[in-house]
């Protein structure tokens, strides 16, 4: 009898996972009108594009931070790897955007895979240092090989062809916005599917308690390597988008402040439910736009103050409001927020 019951349980489990992975009708209502924003705010096309890119970057970080519990201070390494790959390709006559997208994503994922083995051991501090160190090494390399990357002057001379030979990047920024938004949406769907797969669920177990997850028969190291690689690839896509839509790459893409910024974005939006990165990117960019309009040079101060305030008030309480708002989204951030404090020092083995 049990032999018959088992497949049906499996079916039920699979159906339940698929249900939570699928977009709710409400979410279609949010996503579908987004392309029209450009017609509402034509003067803010550049900002819109930046928001989409930052959102993608933050979603990629959420995959490792919110779902695997890896604290990284060097995620910009992958952003930069993607940006430089696409940039160098475009500067050397391979300007097809989709080719650049594929190549940049693959290069970043490869880098992520290669470096993922370094973050499996040690404490949070060791991981922070290694991720940060790898990013700094990349920065030094990009600076050193200025013949290829343009060094401190930045990479000029990129010619990006029209997308699929049809839509060229124009000065109004419309193509850029549609392009970035499409990539963001596709990547978001992919990430959503991933975290609601059995793989994603086992990853949450690894985050909760690595040793117990291992006792359950989960190969924790392989899970972490896999998610780190995927996350790096998505971060690379974000970098490619920036390079192609602005047609310029500078050492700035590998700078420390970029890694810190994306962490902040994720903290504003909340971790562990994917939408956090998007909400955070919107809030952060609007705020940056507003603050740097007021005090161009010193907006960093307010960002710092915000960070300190968020941490002192408590991230859970701060994002709780957003969480309640999004409580009917899959991933149930409200419940997650309630138990988050208990999951504090999760991965001290």
């Amino acid at each position: 009898m049990s032999g018959e019951a088992k497949p049906s349980t499996l079916e039920a489990a699979r159906a339940s996972l698929m249900r939570s992975a699928a977009l709710k009708p409400f979410e279609y209502l949010v996503w579908l009108p987004l392309p029209l924003l450009i017609f509402l705010f034509p003067s803010k096309a550049f900002l819109l594009n930046e928001i989409a890119i930052l959102a993608l970057f933050a979603v990629s970080l959420d995959l490792i931070l919110g779902f695997a519990g890896i604290v990284s201070l060097g995620h910009a390494a992958f952003f930069g790897a993607g940006a430089y790959t696409a940039g160098i390709l475009a500067a050397n006559g391979f300007g097809a955007p989709l080719l650049g997208l594929a190549a940049g994503g693959a290069a970043a994922a490869l880098l992520g895979f290669a470096t993922s083995f370094f973050i499996l051991r040690g404490s949070d501090l060791t991981r922070l240092m290694i991720t940060l160190g790898l990013q700094l090494i990349l920065l030094e390399l990009a600076n050193r090989f200025s013949g290829l990357t343009g060094g401190t002057d930045g990479l000029y001379g990129m010619t990006v062809d029209p997308i699929a030979g049809l839509f060229s990047f124009d000065l109004t920024g419309q193509t850029a916005w549609f392009y970035s938004l499409t990539v963001l949406f596709a990547a978001f769907l992919f990430a959503r599917r991933l975290v609601h797969s059995p793989f994603g669920r086992s990853l949450k177990a690894v985050k909760g308690n690595r040793r117990r997850a291992a006792f359950l028969g989960i190969d924790t190291n392989r899970r972490l390597v896999a998610i780190y690689t995927v996350s790096a690839g998505l971060a690379g896509l974000a970098g490619v988008l920036l390079a192609q839509t602005t047609q310029f790459v500078s050492l700035d893409v590998l700078d420390f402040h970029r890694s810190a910024e994306v962490l902040l974005v994720l903290v504003i939006g909340g971790t562990g439910y994917l939408y956090g990165g998007i909400f955070g990117a919107v809030i952060f960019k609007l705020m940056q736009d507003w603050l740097s309009g007021m005090t161009p040079q010193y907006w960093q101060f307010w960002i710092g103050l915000l960070l300190v305030a968020i941490v002192l008030v408590g991230r859970e309480r701060m994002t709780g409001g957003l969480g309640r708002l999004a409580a009917f989204l899959p991933g149930r951030p409200a419940r997650r927020a309630a138990k988050a404090p208990a999951a504090g020092g999760e991965d001290a083995p």
Partner: peptide
């Protein structure tokens, strides 16, 4: 607090000090 909070808090302080 966990390490992430500490990192964020102290980065915030650094940004404030720099500006």
């Amino acid at each position: 607090r966990n390490h992430l909070d500490q990192v964020l808090f102290s980065i915030g302080l650094v940004f404030m000090a720099v500006a």
